Structure formats: structure tokens, C-alpha cells
Simulated assay, not measured.
Amino acid sequence: MTPTSNADWSTPEGLKAIKEAVAATIPGWQPPTAYAVGLSSASSSPEPEFPHINAPGGAHNLPGVILAKVLGHDGSTATIDLTAAQLESAVATLAPAEACTTVEHPNLAAWRHVLGELRSNPARTAYAVYVGDLDDPVTSEADAALRTHL
């Protein structure tokens, strides 16, 4: 997936334009209040792991749009199983954003961590959790766990 052919990945303004261009290609897209990529626990604890959470008011919206595009999701409240191939696609699509050195890229670091965990322990599962509105019904245990971190 190529967000735009003449995209400027090196500036915050360019990243914002890319986000808007990708979002415009997602039918019904609504920016979520919060989102994260989660990973099933590696221990006996049922608590999922969220290496990075995009909380309400956060500035990192491009990753959520790119992930939604890969998943065919509209940003509404949902928990979506995430394959390693889908996450690899999202990482590859978002990686050019690292050219912008004036902002941090915590989602890329978190997604790469999740990919490493999936590769080293095939019993673990990953998922994307989107919370469209905090008043929406909880969609899964992972959604409930994410909301407790907010």
C-alpha cells in the first residue's frame, strides 16, 4: 500500500497530509478516541500487553490510519485479530515516517516489538483495538484492558 506517490515523509506537515490522504480512502473513516496493537500474554496472566497506547488527545494519528487501511477498518470501536503479515504490511507502510526526525515514532517501535514476539512465540496472538468513543460498549477483553490503561 502506497499512501501517496509524492508524499513528504520528512516533516510533520507532510505526515499530516499523508494521514489525511490515506484516511480519505477509507470508507466511513472516523478517527478513534484511542487505539493500540495488543499482544496476548506470554505468561499465565490473562492481561494482554500493549507496548504503546494511543490515548485520547494523542498526536500519533497516522499509524492508526495506516493500520486501519491495512485491516479494512473504519476506526470504529472494534477488536480485530491481527496477523503477522498484516502487521508487517503496516510497519512497511509506516516506516518511511522515520524520515521525520522531529517527532517520535512509538507505534513503529511497538509494532516491531509485537512482530518479534509473534515470530519468537507462535502461541501468542496480536490484535488491533480501536475505541471510537469511550461510551461505546466494550468489544472484547483486550478492549476492556486497553480502556483500564486510559
Rank of each mutant, 00 (worst) to 15 (best):
A123Q: 14
A97W: 08
C100Q: 05
A110L: 03
A85N: 05
T77M: 02
Y127R: 13
Y127V: 06
L146I: 03
R147G: 01
N107I: 03
V129K: 07
L82G: 08
E98V: 14
E88W: 07
E88I: 00
D133I: 00
V138M: 01
H105V: 01
A144L: 03
E117Q: 15
R124P: 06
E117P: 10
Y130M: 12
L87C: 06
S89C: 10
V103F: 06
G132W: 07
A144D: 03
S140V: 00
I80G: 02
R119E: 14
L94H: 14
V103G: 10
A109V: 10
N121E: 15
A109W: 09
T77L: 01
T102A: 13
A145D: 02
L134R: 01
A126K: 09
R119T: 12
S120Q: 14
P106A: 11
A90P: 12
D135V: 07
Y130F: 15
P122M: 09
T77H: 00
R124S: 10
T125E: 14
A128E: 05
D135G: 08
G132D: 06
W111V: 13
A142M: 08
Y130W: 08
D136T: 01
L82T: 03
A97Y: 07
V138P: 03
Q86I: 00
Q86S: 04
L87Y: 09
C100V: 13
V103I: 15
A142K: 05
A92C: 11
E88H: 12
D136H: 05
R147S: 03
G132H: 04
P96S: 10
A99E: 15
R147E: 04
A78L: 04
D136W: 06
S120K: 13
D143Q: 02
L134C: 00
Y127P: 01
D81C: 02
A126F: 09
D133N: 10
E104D: 14
A128R: 04
P122E: 05
E98N: 13
S76L: 02
T125G: 15
R119Y: 09
V114C: 10
T79S: 07
V114Y: 07
S120L: 10
V138I: 11
T83I: 12
L134V: 11
V131T: 12
T139E: 03
W111A: 11
V103P: 12
A109S: 13
A128N: 06
R147F: 01
A95L: 14
A90F: 13
A126G: 10
D143I: 01
A110Y: 09
D135H: 08
L108S: 07
R147A: 02
A95M: 12
G116M: 02
A99N: 15
L87D: 03
A145T: 08
S89Q: 15
D136G: 02
G116H: 04
D81Y: 02
A128K: 08
T102V: 13
V103W: 09
Y130C: 04
T102D: 15
